[in-house]
């Protein structure tokens, strides 16, 4: 019997999906183990987030202050430290997002609570909570236990838990507004602006056929061969993160959580291993066809059709069939 805290995440006035994914999971855990569920949101004045979260939790704690309107690790850490110290939740969940990754480990150290990051499942067992994580880029999973503590923290992988669009019917948490009553230091960080990095001459999100290339392409010069295939097939060229990291293609070609979410009728993945950040970007694809030398590549777990072969062998064979046929 204890409290589960879910720390909401928002950007530019919108609550992020990860918030509801965590609430969905925490709600199920709470029902099963008789824990109460509290959604915690730090935001600017009159954010309106409290009412949005109320149907999902037993209780919503809203902390509103000008200094909380944009994410700031220094101020958020101080505010949450006070809250978790005062209320001693048994389990505190945050998103494993760029902001959560910045905030959660620091808070864990300051609050003296153990943390497991990037969890894809949460088990509450008699001996304490257990985190299920992916390691080695999803090739293996691990079951992680904690040193005994009064409270535990986990960051949750976006997309790990299904997002139930409609709020639960039996839920209607009370909303408690709390002042930012913590001793808040002057922040060492100052927000400047948000910058769009995904724009460019091609919008891969609109394509019906994406011919997508990954690390397996080997070097920049080899991209042309795949580009030529994309043109022959009347498809659009896209890629996974390593290709952009190596500056072989501009970022507007990138599929995945930090790039674009796509929904083509067919996604042809060539030499893409299938890191979860990539796979999350193709969840809306109709048919996924993967070609990879590595038969154990995680992409085959989500693909509809697979070919274990060198991508250039397949690319060349496809070109030959098209031009001769």
């Amino acid at each position: 019997m204890g409290h589960i805290f879910v720390i909401a995440e928002h950007r530019q006035g919108e609550l992020r999906d990860i918030t509801f994914e965590m609430l969905y999971k925490a709600r199920a855990l709470g029902r099963e183990h008789a824990h109460t569920l509290t959604a915690v949101v730090l935001g600017g004045p009159d954010s309106g987030f409290g009412d949005r979260l109320a149907p999902w939790a037993d209780r919503v704690v809203v902390m509103e202050d000008d200094r909380l309107s944009a994410f700031d690790a220094d101020i958020y850490t101080a505010a949450l430290l006070k809250l978790v110290t005062d209320e001693a939740p048994f389990l505190t969940l945050m998103g494993h997002t760029p902001w959560g990754m910045d905030l959660a480990p620091a808070l864990s150290v300051r609050a003296g609570l153990p943390v497991a990051t990037d969890c894809v499942d949460i088990l509450l067992e008699e001996g304490g909570p257990v985190a299920i994580r992916q390691i080695y880029n999803g090739k293996l999973y691990s079951r992680v236990g904690f040193k005994a503590s009064t409270g535990y923290m986990m960051t949750v992988r976006p997309g790990a838990f299904s997002l139930d669009e409609a709020p639960p019917e039996d839920g209607a948490g009370e909303v408690a507004t709390r002042a930012l009553d913590a001793e808040v230091p002057e922040s060492r960080k100052e927000f400047v602006e948000f910058v769009d990095t995904g724009g460019g001459e091609v919008d891969i999100a609109q394509a019906d056929l994406l011919v997508s290339v990954g690390r397996g392409v080997g070097e920049a010069e080899n991209i042309d061969a795949v580009k030529a295939l994309a043109e022959l097939l009347g498809g659009t060229l896209s890629c996974s993160r390593p290709v952009v990291d190596r500056h072989w293609l501009p970022k507007y070609h990138q599929v995945g959580t930090s790039g674009k979410t796509v929904k083509p009728k067919v996604y042809l993945a060539l030499g893409i291993s299938g890191a979860f950040q990539h796979v999350a970007g193709i969840a809306g694809a109709g048919t996924v066809i993967a070609v990879n030398k590595d038969g154990k590549a995680p992409i085959f777990r989500v693909a509809d059709y697979g070919v274990v072969d060198d991508l250039f062998t397949v690319v060349d064979a496809l070109k030959e069939k098209i031009t001769s046929g």
Binding site: L140, R301, G306, V307, E320
Partner: peptide
């Protein structure tokens, strides 16, 4: 340590991809 890896295991089975076999021409 605050966390302990109690067990490492292979990913749960999924339906997986239907594998296309054969030589390159047949695959194409």
């Amino acid at each position: 340590p605050r966390t302990v890896v109690e067990q490492v295991f292979f990913p749960p089975e999924t339906a997986g991809a239907e594998m296309i076999q054969g030589d390159a021409g047949a695959v194409a």
